[in-house]
């Protein structure tokens, strides 16, 4: 069973605000989902190496050449707020 405190902690880490009703709801729902995962413990994985990726992926290197670049105004075009050619955020320090 996942407690309300755990949901509150995870929500804070995920930068999400939840009200009391949502916390209770998610606590119950996350518990349900985690319960179904218990089934996995029935599969014997002693000595099995975790498989993060289905392919034998290797690091890809390339020359550090300048490729396609975007103009400042293009990069700022999707910004919710901008000022003097910069992304605008509230004062941080």
């Amino acid at each position: 069973m996942i407690s309300k405190e755990v949901v509150e902690k995870v929500a804070k880490l995920s930068r999400l605000n939840l009200d009391e009703a949502e916390i209770a709801l998610y606590a119950e729902q996350l518990s349900q989902i985690l319960d179904t995962m218990e089934g996995l413990q029935q599969i014997d994985t002693d000595g099995v190496v975790p498989l993060a990726h289905v392919l034998p992926i290797e690091n890809v290197f390339r020359e550090d050449d300048v490729g396609q670049c975007f103009r400042q105004e293009e990069v700022l075009a999707n910004a919710p707020e901008q000022s003097d050619g910069m992304f605008q955020v509230p004062k941080i320090v």
Binding site: V10, S14, L34, L40, T45, V48, P50, L51, A52, V54
Partner: peptide
Amino acid sequence: SETLSTENYSKVYDKAMRVRRV
């Protein structure tokens, strides 16, 4: 986020990656 937490990582996330290989 919960599955990746310290308490759950080996029991849940790591286990899922092993099951993936099986």
